[in-house]
């Protein structure tokens, strides 16, 4: 419960900041959607598995949004988001059948390989996907409203905030449910799981599908905010960033992924402003400090201190 309250405080803070400092509105929406994707990674991390390819679901949902928006001009933004999530969930369900068999480095690398196939395909089929230039998305109506850029972003910010709240609530319920606790047991003892008659692979598949739909939600929002999708969204470096955020935020609570994403985005932004040439170094040092002093990430540290 405390974690949910912390999430509400964080989201309220973000919304207020976005209104007080309008130039931060776009970065905040981007950071929050990143948080959703990182939450997807965290779901798998609770099962002790790390995927280095989940940006493919972000990318897939974003391109779905772009394609559908192009094919059906006048379609509502909310419908686009739903479609993006649906498509990445279906893709996750299918790819999951295959990758749910593997663990640890094999799982991580397999996801990476599949994501790079997607990246290459999108980059090569210039006629259909626009290649590395990507695809533009003209601003759609949102929940029936035809809005200017600013109003559109405000609505997106609210949508993102509400989805994060709902998702956080459901993910926390999930991790308290039998399915969620079975998923965590994959981390510590898969053999025992099989010997109480539970299919570890099916349990893991369910977790994988959840994670892919969260990444899909992030990708769909991302696409609408940016108005542009590029293959870079599915590049392995982006997958790495999602893992970075999960580590930074920790997996003790869903709140971790969201605060991790905020911390990451703003660290990156201000590091780039302050030390243009060395901003990677600041990110790297932060990760080293986190792993050394707070191996459970921000949420792990807060949980230890009983704040959440």
């Amino acid at each position: 419960m405390k974690g949910i309250i912390a999430t509400i405080i964080l989201l309220t803070g973000s919304v207020v900041t976005a209104f007080l400092l309008p130039h931060l509105k776009t970065p905040i929406i981007l950071a929050l959607s990143y948080g959703l994707a990182a939450l997807g990674i965290s779901v798998l991390m609770r099962a002790g598995q790390v995927s280095f390819g989940h940006a493919m679901y972000v990318c897939l949902a974003a391109y779905s949004v772009a394609f559908i928006a192009k094919a059906y001009p006048g379609i509502d933004g909310l419908v686009l988001i739903v479609c993006g999530v649906a498509i990445s969930t279906i893709a996750g369900a299918i790819i999951g059948i295959f990758v749910s068999k593997y663990r640890e480095i094999f799982f991580g690398m397999l996801n990476l390989a599949i994501s790079m196939v997607l990246f290459a395909v999108i980059g090569k089929y210039y006629n259909i996907t626009g290649g590395s230039d990507g695809m533009m998305i003209s601003r759609p109506s949102f929940i029936g409203f035809e809005l200017e850029r600013d109003g559109f972003e405000t609505l997106l910010l609210i949508t993102t905030t509400v989805s994060i709240l709902l998702v956080t609530y459901f993910i926390e319920r999930f991790f308290n449910s039998p399915a969620g606790k079975f998923l965590c047991a994959i981390k510590t003892n898969e053999t025992r799981l099989e010997y109480i008659g539970v299919s570890a692979r099916f349990v893991f598949w369910k977790g994988y599908v959840i994670s892919s739909s969260l990444c899909g939600l992030a990708g769909a929002i991302f696409a609408l905010v940016q108005g542009l999708v590029t293959p870079e969204m599915g590049y392995w470096l982006k997958s790495g960033e999602l893992v970075f955020i999960s580590l930074l935020g920790g997996v003790a609570h869903s709140f971790g992924a969201i605060i991790g994403a905020m911390a990451f985005e703003f660290l990156k932004m201000y590091a780039a402003i302050l030390m243009t040439d060395y901003w990677h170094m600041i990110l790297g040092s932060t990760l080293i400090l986190i792993i050394y002093f707070a191996p459970g990430g921000i949420s792990g540290w807060l949980k230890n201190k009983k704040y959440i």
Binding site: F174, P178, G180, K181, F182, C184, A185, Y195, I196, V198
Partner: peptide, 30 residues
């Protein structure tokens, strides 16, 4: 002994019971 080292003793037992009765809810608490 094969236990789930990061689950509590109670949860270990509850998980076996859930497995026996095919309780795989994603939403209801264990």
């Amino acid at each position: 002994p094969q236990v789930y080292s990061e689950h509590t003793v109670r949860e270990c037992i509850e998980l076996s019971l859930a497995a026996r009765d095919n309780k795989t809810s994603l939403f209801k608490s264990l």
